[in-house]
Amino acid sequence: MKLKKNIATSEAGFVFNPATGDSFAASPLAAEILELLKAGQAPAAIQASLLARYEVSASQLQRDWDDLMAQLHQFQLLES
């Protein structure tokens, strides 16, 4: 689960895929996750850090995580 190398992300949540020309708007939390993925952090480590900082249950986070990854996959932003 790695972000493609050439994907540009900004702190404000702007995401650009130079290969396809598509751009995206990520919510603040999604932007934070993208930055961490891009920095090469493992999903489990990212989730643990989110759980420690955000008011959310592990099961809720897992569902939302899966949904986000499915979206990233559909938008062709992940390494296959």
Partner: peptide, 14 residues
Amino acid sequence: TKLPYERPTIRKLT
């Protein structure tokens, strides 16, 4: 105290 949570979303800009 923890930060308020909202699910992460990403939306394609058209």
